[in-house]
Design a binder for these strands. Structure first.
Length: 339
DNA sequence: TTGTGTTTTATTGCCTCC
DNA sequence: GGAGGCAATAAAACACAA
């Protein structure tokens, strides 16, 4: 046998000769009442030089070839079933005697006994192993194997439990994240809506307050500013052109039609302010916004919405004079137009 | 009855500890 | 180097549907 481990499967010792009280005698005693097996013991099983005192009666499961019919109440399985002797008689019995041992299951009572012992301590010290073997009428090796397999089963179940716990935890976290994400989206939409509203309001107020300066602007740039990001870009471009044009030909401003209902200096200045560097969405902010998006995509636990450098922005309360509300505009199309 | 999947018992080889 | 634990695996025993 490789590894030098040799197990004596055919040992004739087995059983153990009574003597001494088991450390688990209380278990044995407690089971006597419910163990129907002990009442059905085959007398021949007890006919050894030193019969075991255990209720399992020194079964010698791997060594005894007695067919001890210990019908269990639950399944009527014999205590051990090495083979059926009643069919072929002594011939097969002799034959069986020279064959390697067949596996046989432990009885329900033996298993219960071992289970209780396992609950007390899942490791097996040598003394305990020998005592258990004596009590159960098994080979110490069998007890050791049973504990080993039992530990393996316990470990498997523990892993399943741990997996369930982790899965529940994950599900809970995911639900939280989903809720936060929805809330973030909702707030984001609300912020954009309010931003647009404020821009329109500000433009309207400037239209009514500021004097008319440039009457020569083309009427098409007076289209609604807050329609979309694209239209905003067009307006800004146009107003920049207008600004340059104003610089060049400011002397001609007197010939502009001051009665144009669609174009007032209010709008113009508002648009200019819109395109002013103090208002325009700066690359730094856009980068921050981009970073935020990146980090959002990478880190699911970021706050739903972040307002970078809020204290540094010209946030007026209420924001009547500036369109910079401290909100990073996340819609890149909104600020990515070029001059 | 039989095929098939699951459970239980046991073996093997490797590893660690004393 | 021996004893014992563990993972992987074999194989018998068992359960159960068809």
């Amino acid at each position: 046998m490789a590894g030098g481990r040799m197990y004596n499967q055919n040992s004739s010792s087995g059983g153990g000769s009574g003597g001494g009280t088991s450390s688990l005698s209380f278990l044995i005693q407690s089971q006597k009442g419910s163990c129907s097996n002990s009442q059905n013991l085959d007398a021949s099983f007890l006919s050894g030089p030193s019969p075991s005192p255990s209720p399992f009666l020194g079964s010698r499961s791997m060594v005894s070839f007695e067919d001890v019919h210990l019908a269990n109440g639950s399944n009527n399985r014999p205590f051990f079933r090495p083979f059926d002797r009643d069919e072929n008689g002594d011939e097969d019995f002799d034959e069986y005697f020279h064959q390697p041992e067949k596996k046989r299951r432990l009885t329900v009572d033996q298993v219960q006994f071992l289970e209780k012992s396992f609950e007390v301590e899942n490791k097996l010290e040598p003394e305990r192993k020998i005592q258990l073997a004596k009590d159960l009428g098994l080979q110490p090796r069998q007890v050791a194997i049973w504990f080993q397999n039992r530990r393996a089963r316990w470990k498997t179940k523990q892993l399943e439990k741990d997996y369930d716990v982790l899965q529940n935890s994950y599900n809970s976290l995911k639900a939280d994240y989903d809720n936060l994400f929805k809330e973030k989206e909702k707030l984001k939409a609300e912020v954009l809506k309010l931003t647009d509203k404020l821009q329109v309001k500000e433009k309207e107020s400037k239209n009514t307050e500021l004097p008319v300066v440039n009457k020569q602007e083309p009427p098409q740039i007076s289209e609604p500013v807050a329609d979309s990001a694209a239209s905003e870009g067009k307006v800004c471009k146009a107003s920049v052109v207008a600004c340059k044009q104003e610089d060049i030909s400011s002397a001609k401003s007197d010939i502009f039609d001051s009665d144009s209902p669609h174009y007032t200096d209010g709008v113009h200045s508002s648009l200019l302010e819109t395109c002013d560097s103090s208002y325009v969405f700066e690359p730094e902010q856009s980068d921050l916004s981009q970073d935020e998006d990146d980090s959002l995509s990478k880190n699911v636990l970021l706050p739903p919405y972040v307002f970078p450098k809020l204290e540094e922005t010209e946030y007026s309360d209420p924001p009547t004079n500036s369109c910079n509300f401290g909100f990073p505009i996340e819609d890149h199309a909104f600020w990515s137009w070029s001059f």
